[in-house]
């Protein structure tokens, strides 16, 4: 696990910065909740009467006046955007950086097979995403405890699980991209994450674009659906997991045969 350890070590700073940024932002939102709660009636009305904008973020079906509803929209968006970009960046650079930084010529003449390197890098990407989500969840739970609210365990864990799987999916796809590019993959990764986020908003606004939910990784992260149904939307989740596996399989297929520069 030499490569795995090296990956984690080299990303440690980035992991901490991203985890704490997302975690502290979520905690700050939760900590603001008691002050806002008293004014929530007005806010709720306002948010629910903004037409497409309301739909876009699922606020038509969430009660902004409760902590769950508030958390689902605020925290959901923060961890959704932050987590997606982080997962994309980590995954797309995993294989690419060996050629971009010219370290491939140092690493690969060691007695380690390509498959082994790919596997260890893949595991490191998923492990890093797990660390980020664990830190974020701890920040979140701590902040809810700090405002003396009851923790809505089932919904909270389901929401976080959905976002974790979303990050896994984006990571899998970007890992596939990582095997092909030798430089400049960062833009592609961020592009994929951003595009998926926007596709979900479009799907929320327009009924004709509902089918996009099957494509975007954000389809199954819709908190309104999770809270009302108490489970994840399998019909959106399964295509996503297939995409993820396809991305990973592509990475193996390409990178084991690739001529390294």
């Amino acid at each position: 696990m030499t490569v795995f350890k090296q990956e984690i070590k080299s990303q440690l700073k980035a992991i901490l910065i991203w985890s704490l940024s997302i975690g502290i932002l979520i905690a700050a939102c939760v900590l603001m909740y008691p002050d806002m709660e008293s004014q929530m009636d007005g806010v709720n009305k306002m948010f629910s009467s903004m037409g497409s904008f309301t739909q876009a973020f699922g606020m038509d079906r969430l009660n902004f006046g409760t902590l769950i509803g508030f958390y689902a929209v605020e925290a959901g968006n923060i961890i959704g955007i932050g987590g997606a970009f982080f997962a994309a960046i980590i995954a797309v650079s995993a294989l690419m950086k060996e050629e971009q930084d010219h370290t491939a010529e140092f690493l690969f003449p060691h007695p380690i097979s390509r498959v082994q390197v790919i596997t260890e890098k893949l595991l490191s990407v998923y492990f890093i995403i797990l660390i980020l989500n664990a830190i974020v969840l701890i920040c979140s739970i701590t902040s809810i405890l700090l405002i003396h609210e009851e923790i809505f365990w089932k919904e909270l864990l389901l929401i976080h699980l959905a976002y974790l799987l979303m990050q896994f999916e984006i990571a899998g796809i970007c890992f596939g991209v990582s095997a092909f590019v030798t430089r400049g993959g960062m833009g592609i990764g961020i592009g994929i994450a951003g595009l998926m986020y926007i596709l979900n908003i479009v799907a929320n606004i327009s009924d004709q674009a509902k089918f996009l939910k099957y494509i975007t990784a954000f389809g199954y992260t819709e908190s309104a659906d999770i809270i009302s149904s108490g489970c994840l939307e399998l019909k959106y989740l399964l295509p996503g997991m297939v995409l993820m596996i396809a991305g990973i399989a592509t990475a193996y297929a390409k990178y084991t045969r690739k001529d390294l520069r």
């Binding site: 930084d101 010219h102 370290t103 140092f106 003449p109 007695p111």
Partner: peptide, 15 residues
């Protein structure tokens, strides 16, 4: 690779 050693012409290491 187990029994060989290699020095590339331009070598870079992990930052």
């Amino acid at each position: 690779l187990q029994k060989a050693g290699y020095l590339p012409s331009e070598i870079h290491f992990y930052s």
